[in-house]
Simulated assay, not measured.
Amino acid sequence: MSQLEDIAKQDNWRCWVCDEPVDRTASANDPRGPSVDSRTTAKLKKGATDYAGGERLAHKRCNTRKGAVTPVIPWPSTIMLVEPAPLIAVAERLDRKGGREVVVRCADRKSADQTAAWLVDRFSRLAPGMPVEASVEPGGGQFLVALTTARRR
Rank of each mutant, 00 (worst) to 15 (best):
V36H: 06
R153K: 15
F143A: 07
V82Q: 11
A116H: 03
V132Y: 08
M1D: 05
V103K: 08
D19P: 03
R151V: 00
A134T: 13
Q10K: 08
T25L: 12
P76L: 05
I73W: 07
A48E: 01
G53V: 03
R100G: 06
P34M: 06
T149K: 05
E133T: 13
W75Y: 12
A26E: 11
D95S: 04
A48W: 01
G67T: 11
L44D: 01
G47P: 02
I79W: 13
D113A: 09
T70N: 09
E83S: 14
E20Y: 12
E92I: 05
A150H: 03
R14Q: 08
L57M: 03
A58I: 05
G129L: 10
F143S: 12
R109A: 11
D23F: 07
G47F: 00
V104L: 06
R32W: 15
P131K: 12
S77M: 08
S38F: 03
A52P: 00
S135C: 13
A28V: 10
R105M: 10
S35V: 08
E20V: 02
L4T: 07
T25N: 12
D11H: 01
V36C: 04
A89D: 10
P74F: 09
Y51N: 01
G54T: 01
A146L: 05
R153E: 15
E20R: 12
T40F: 12
Q10H: 08
C15S: 01
R39G: 15
V22S: 11
P76Y: 08
E83A: 15
C18T: 00
V145H: 01
K66N: 08
W16D: 00
T41Y: 02
D95Y: 07
G139M: 13
N29S: 14
G54C: 00
A52C: 02
E133F: 13
T70H: 10
R109G: 03
L94S: 07
A89L: 09
N29R: 14
E133P: 04
A85S: 13
G141M: 10
T41G: 06
A52Y: 05
A91F: 05
G140N: 11
A48F: 02
A48Q: 03
A8C: 08
Q3L: 05
T41M: 06
L57E: 01
S135D: 15
V145Y: 09
N12H: 00
E20I: 06
N12S: 05
P86V: 07
C18G: 04
L119Y: 07
Y51Q: 00
R122Y: 14
I79D: 14
G33Y: 14
R125V: 08
T70M: 12
A117C: 09
A42P: 02
A28M: 04
V17Y: 04
G139S: 12
N63C: 01
T78M: 10
P138Y: 15
G67I: 07
H59Y: 00
A91S: 04
A127W: 11
V136E: 15
V103E: 04
T40D: 12
T149L: 03
V36P: 12
Q142D: 06
T70C: 10
L147S: 02
A112Y: 04
